[in-house]
């Protein structure tokens, strides 16, 4: 594991609502995530873990505090640059898959590359490569809807992988899967983390999944309560 910091937050605070009825979803959270780490953001629903992930993934802007991506303060970036950053360096895996169910598996996997404006032949090559990694090459031409839940999530991982991201954000990746297929998907994510040195940030309330990560970030009522490392006391 290299020691380069990939994401660093300082006093990250997110407040929803206007003056009279404000709600602090995230309160002064300062964390540092190193390149190649696997991190679980864990907490009950409503704890602010999703808000933290959204901020880390630059999907939302903090009320105060900073997020540095690769040493650069992202809050100072323009929308275009943020979009570019997300497109080039982040991959996303969601609990509900979010696939275009009528479209082919291949087209679904190619979506981030289409957004990046990569030419069709290159797109196809890279998407097939990504499908190879998740072991679904034979399903490239199938309709996304015809796949099983586990297969769908693997297609989503291929989609998150296709742009060679530095970080993959996974929001409850096994939440919609039974334990056996969930295990498969987990294995896949961790093998990518190890083999491709992709930083993994998993939002979950599943203790077992969280325990497989290098580090857990426990969030409660919007505050960082603990960051136990793997193997440390449970």
């Amino acid at each position: 594991m290299s020691e380069t910091t990939i994401i660093k937050t300082t006093n990250l605070t997110k407040v929803y609502g206007k003056k009279s009825a404000t709600f602090t979803a995230l309160d002064n959270v300062s964390i540092e995530i190193k390149r190649g780490e696997s991190v679980a953001i864990i907490g009950k629903s409503g704890s602010g873990k999703s808000t933290l992930m959204h901020l880390l993934a630059l999907l939302d802007k903090p009320t105060s505090g900073t997020i540095e991506i690769g040493g650069k303060d992202s809050t100072k970036l323009k929308n275009r640059q943020v979009n570019r950053l997300r497109n080039h360096r982040f991959g996303f895996v969601f609990q509900q898959f979010f696939m275009n169910s009528r479209d082919s598996v291949l087209n679904n996997v190619m979506l981030p590359l289409r957004i990046a404006g990569i030419k069709p032949s290159e797109r196809k090559r890279r998407a097939l490569e990504a499908l190879e990694i998740v072991d679904l090459s034979d399903k490239a031409k199938s309709r996304a809807n015809d796949l099983s839940g586990g297969q769908k999530q693997r297609v989503c991982i291929a989609r998150a992988l296709v742009n060679n991201p530095a970080v993959i954000f996974a929001d409850e990746p096994t939440g919609n899967l039974d334990s056996t297929t969930g295990k498969l998907v987990e294995d896949l994510l961790f093998s990518l983390n190890k083999e491709k040195d992709i930083t993994l940030i998993i939002v979950t309330h599943d203790e077992d999944l969280a325990s497989r990560c290098n580090r857990q970030i426990h969030i409660k009522d919007g505050q960082l309560v603990a960051q136990p490392r793997k193997g440390a006391k449970k």
């Binding site: 929308n79 979009n83 570019r84 997300r86 497109n87 979010f98 979506l111 981030p112 957004i115």
Partner: peptide, 16 residues
């Protein structure tokens, strides 16, 4: 809506 959200998350700009 969700597809739009996904594409935006993946970095597709408002103009596009």
């Amino acid at each position: 809506t969700r597809e739009i959200g996904l594409m935006k998350a993946m970095g597709l700009g408002r103009g596009k």
